[in-house]
Computed example of a mutant assay.
Amino acid sequence: MSLLVRAAGLVKEFRRAKRVPGRMSVLRTFLSREYDVIRAVDDVSFDIHEGELVGYLGPNGAGKSTTIKMLTGILTPTEGTVDVAGNDPSRRRKANALNIGVVFGQRSQLWWDLPLRESFRAIRDLYGVPAAEGDKRQHELVELLDMQEFLDAPVRQLSLGQRMRGDLAAAMIYQPRLLFLDEPTVGLDVVAKHRIREFVAHANQARGTTVVLTTHDLEDVERLCRRIVLIDHGRVLYDGALSELMSRYAPYRDLVVTLASPHDVTVEGAEQVARDGPVVTLRFRSDQVKAPAIIAATTAAAEVVDLAVVEPRLEDVVSRIYTQRGLPA
C-alpha cells in the first residue's frame, strides 16, 4: 500500500489573552499583550496508507479535532509537517480539497433550503465532475444509502439520520481518495447507525477509499477499524492494531455459566470473579488457556444449564487507559 498521509512532529499552539483583574481589565489586557499558550497537539506523528480505515480516538480536549483540522488544511501547524497525497494541506488547500471528503456529525455541507438532489448537483459542479458521471455516482450512492424517498425533500426537512446519509453521499460524489468522518453516528438510532457503518465499510472495501474515523461511539470502531490511534493531552498513547491493543491490555475472557444449583466453581486456569445465585463468572487469560478447555473443565466440575464466553469491551479498555494515562509495560 502506498503512503497517503504523513504527519511528522505536529504541534499546534493557541494563544489566549491573559485576564487581568480589575475594572480596566480589558484595556490592560490589550495593552500588556500577555498571553497564555495552550498546546492542543504535542509532537504527533503517524502515517496512513492507501486503503486503511483508522480510528483516531481520544477524550474531549485530547487534540483529535485540531489534528483533523491540520490534515484538512483548516489550521496550519505551529511546528511539524503534514503531507496528504503529496500536498501540504494548509498551503495547497484547493488541491487538497480534491483528494479529501469531510463529514462532521454536527455540521452539514448541504444547502439547507435546496432539495437533497440539487445539493448533490451543486457539489458535483463545484468539484468539476462531468454531469453524466456525477449522475451515475449519485444514482449508486442513493441506492447504497437508501435515499430515494427523500431525495427531493429540502435538507431542512430531513431527519438527522437522513441528513447524515446525505452528507456521506455528498462527500463521496466526487470520489475522494481520503474520507474524514467526525462523529458520523452521533445522535442516530440503531437502524441508522447500522446503515452508516455498512456504507463506510463498503466505501473502504469496495471502492478503496481511505477512511479516518473520529468518534466517541466505540462500537463504530469495533465494527469498522483494524487500526486505532489513541491520543490524549495532545500526545499519541498508542498506534497499532486494535486486536493487539485488546490482547495486550485485556488478555482475559469471562465464562458466564448458569448452574443447576447455586454454588461456587473451582476450575484450574480460571478464577471465579463473581457469583449471583446460580450464575457464576469465571475469568481466564486467553493467551494462556483456550476457551474450550475452560468450558470442558467447568462442565466436568458442575452441572451447567447455560454458558457464554464474554469478550472484553473496547470501551472498558480505552477507559482504563485514559484513567491510568498510559499503557501497561
Results as ranks from 00 to 15, higher is better:
177 R>C: 04
178 L>S: 04
240 G>V: 01
61 G>A: 10
170 A>S: 11
151 L>S: 01
87 N>M: 09
211 V>E: 00
21 P>E: 00
45 S>N: 08
270 A>C: 06
145 L>I: 11
282 L>V: 05
131 A>C: 12
192 A>W: 02
227 R>K: 13
133 E>K: 15
325 R>F: 02
240 G>E: 05
294 I>R: 00
13 E>Q: 14
324 Q>F: 12
96 N>D: 00
160 L>G: 08
125 D>S: 15
271 E>C: 05
95 A>L: 12
21 P>N: 04
279 V>Q: 04
255 L>V: 01
286 S>E: 00
31 L>F: 14
105 G>V: 00
305 V>G: 03
211 V>A: 03
113 D>M: 11
249 Y>E: 13
62 A>D: 02
15 R>G: 06
11 V>R: 13
72 T>Q: 13
82 V>M: 05
133 E>Y: 12
271 E>P: 14
186 V>T: 14
139 H>N: 15
120 F>G: 08
185 T>I: 11
95 A>Q: 13
173 I>E: 01
30 F>N: 06
115 P>A: 10
80 G>R: 13
77 P>G: 10
261 S>N: 10
200 V>P: 03
128 G>N: 07
121 R>Q: 14
25 S>L: 08
65 S>A: 09
199 F>S: 13
307 L>N: 01
14 F>P: 08
203 A>L: 13
64 K>V: 01
57 L>Q: 04
262 P>M: 06
33 R>W: 12
11 V>D: 00
257 V>Q: 05
304 V>N: 06
180 F>Q: 03
77 P>I: 11
214 T>H: 08
66 T>V: 03
241 A>L: 15
318 V>C: 02
245 L>V: 10
42 D>G: 10
67 T>N: 01
32 S>N: 12
233 H>G: 12
317 V>K: 04
220 D>H: 11
23 R>M: 14
243 S>W: 07
1 M>Q: 08
80 G>K: 12
6 R>L: 09
289 V>R: 07
161 G>Q: 06
47 D>H: 09
143 E>T: 15
206 A>F: 08
294 I>M: 01
19 R>A: 09
253 R>G: 08
176 P>G: 06
92 R>K: 15
164 M>I: 15
203 A>N: 03
130 P>V: 10
316 D>G: 02
15 R>I: 03
59 P>G: 03
305 V>E: 08
84 V>R: 00
271 E>Y: 14
86 G>C: 07
32 S>W: 07
109 Q>E: 13
316 D>T: 12
113 D>H: 15
23 R>E: 11
315 E>T: 01
184 P>N: 09
272 Q>P: 10
267 V>Q: 02
290 K>H: 08
62 A>F: 02
179 L>P: 02
35 Y>T: 14
229 V>N: 00
257 V>F: 09
323 T>V: 02
103 V>D: 04
35 Y>Q: 10
244 E>M: 13
280 V>C: 02
219 E>D: 11
216 H>F: 06
246 M>A: 06
328 P>Q: 07
53 L>S: 10
328 P>S: 07
72 T>H: 14
225 C>T: 05
257 V>P: 08
124 R>E: 11
288 Q>H: 09
309 V>R: 09
309 V>P: 02
295 I>R: 05
203 A>F: 11
315 E>L: 05
16 R>A: 10
8 A>I: 07
169 A>R: 07
110 L>W: 07
99 N>E: 09
274 A>Y: 13
58 G>D: 04
70 M>K: 10
89 P>S: 04
